[in-house]
Write a protein that binds this DNA or RNA. Sequence first.
DNA 1: TGCTAGCGTGAATCCACCC
DNA 2: TGGGTGGATTCACGCTAGC
Lengths: 346, 346
Amino acid sequence: MKKLPDGCVDLIFADPPYNLQLGGDLTRPDNSRVDGVDDEWDKFDSFRAYDEFTRNWLTEARRILKPDGAIWVIGSYHNIFRVGTAIQDTGFWILNDVIWRKSNPMPNFRGTRLTNAHETLIWAAKSQKSKYTFNYRALKTSNDDLQMRSDWEFPICTGSERIKGEDGNKTHPTQKPESLLFRILIGSTKPGDVVLDPFFGSGTTGAAAKYLGRHFIGLERDKTYIKAAKARIAKVKPLDDESLITQPSPKAAARVPFGTVIEHKLLKPGAKLYSPRKNHAAQVRADGSLYVKEGDNEIQGSIHKVGAAVQNAAACNGWTYWHYEEKTGLKPIDFLRDKIRKGMAS
Amino acid sequence: MKKLPDGCVDLIFADPPYNLQLGGDLTRPDNSRVDGVDDEWDKFDSFRAYDEFTRNWLTEARRILKPDGAIWVIGSYHNIFRVGTAIQDTGFWILNDVIWRKSNPMPNFRGTRLTNAHETLIWAAKSQKSKYTFNYRALKTSNDDLQMRSDWEFPICTGSERIKGEDGNKTHPTQKPESLLFRILIGSTKPGDVVLDPFFGSGTTGAAAKYLGRHFIGLERDKTYIKAAKARIAKVKPLDDESLITQPSPKAAARVPFGTVIEHKLLKPGAKLYSPRKNHAAQVRADGSLYVKEGDNEIQGSIHKVGAAVQNAAACNGWTYWHYEEKTGLKPIDFLRDKIRKGMAS
DNA sequence: TGCTAGCGTGAATCCACCC
DNA sequence: TGGGTGGATTCACGCTAGC
């Protein structure tokens, strides 16, 4: 990185080590072992050591950037706050933080915390005065003519996109999806721009850059990664100039869990719900569970579980089974979900 | 804040200011006045002052927390990286970062950046050792029986919930939605817990806490805000106790050793237990141990140890692994434990 | 060839209590 | 306080084997 001249690249994308601090082994409920990140390159002695590492590469990165250049950095809660602080301290000007919402994250197997379902990206210009590249129209068009938001949904990198060695194991533990890099490059570079990735890894940045007609420089220490990245990028066929348009992904209806209905106060805790024929009644609790007492039998759980239990059925769609009382009669709680979907609830 | 004693609150929710006007003119370390023309110095001093402010209140917050207490802090990219770094440096242990996805964010009118459609929350325990409160079941139930993720969608605070002055203008610039606080309190406090909000503002924390049967302490300098918050909270009607019961964790249930099942004669010594696919069989002994003989291999021990051994697994939950035979087919012995817990066994 | 059930796996700071 | 043990704990999706 030190060998590169001042002001020679338009954009930097960086996926630095996250400084994860994992304990012992983690197993899934089926006793299989989770293959975590235990590589040497992710080990730092302290926050201070990580901060020094971060400031060093960010300072070099800023030197190499053109005056109107910009940087993207990705991370998780383990490191992103330290990276963000260093970005501000080294003179970059933050433009947005962007959330990559994973459509298929790994669950929290022990039920000890929330499912870690996102990663954070920081987009920053070299300085407050930089006239950074932002292809507003392109992103808006690809988003069904709505302004592109700061939260992006993509699946994690799996299947045939994921690079595997001869042994069938993943070559790189943290390969990023190309779709993520596509959007970044489409939104913040022009064709012909030079993109630098100082933590090249499996070469996702290079593959996306070549595909989209951008030049790239990739820096990487590990020879296995370099070899895999070279082979991968060699296979990429650049798009012709006219095809550099992204396709919007059709979105399914937003999922609205029952707890949301209570959080919106469309139903209050303590409210009564009824089965269609009113032969079963349940009480709503603050946490979004239902409670039924019939004789000596007490049941509690989700609207679906409790609905199934009172009917002695294997499964039940609580949204259509449970009803609330209105002047005009019973209405299914699905009606309330619909209100939220349509934005009719404040 | 300095007046509160050590270790007196269970949870802290903080929405710190991120404007850099912290009162008084900024001065350099050498006491010379900051010249507004010198951007770099200005920026540096601003960040330094903000960091000092942040570290001060976080240190006090940590002192006031009980050993097993936790903190939530909300912010945007202007300040959250500095806050997150300070949280780590003052000894808190980050549990999750959570994204509040705004369903109706303010658009970016000039089209110069992405629509800023989210804010970031950090959830951290007082220390790595803290046994923080996490109502896993409650959140999972309210999320239609799926683990709660780290990205939450709520609308911004508008309409009748938004507090307005006599002039019709909003009283507080960044009033948070009660639904957000609702989920935080349901997920990470118990009824009767004490919640502190050191930047009380319009009192959303107090309103949600009172509604959910939690005590609260609110700190605020601005008299207008105090008055508005008091009036607001006075109107809140607390929920009744029954609605506040949340889905209990199985861990909280009384422990029933396997021997008890035999003592209750729900299983007799000598009875046979089977694995789910009936490929392993074990014999129940009077002392509550199991015995398995497969070829020359003899295994004995607890239901868990023997279950793990026959599967060659590191661990096993014997209650769900071993089944007994009934007319209708195999049933897990967990069913018998449930009978005892419910007092249905003689 | 087509469909399905079952298996594998992903940047993870992943247990609690008793003695 | 450290070791032993009871026993709680998973979502989405791609691939494969089998019918």
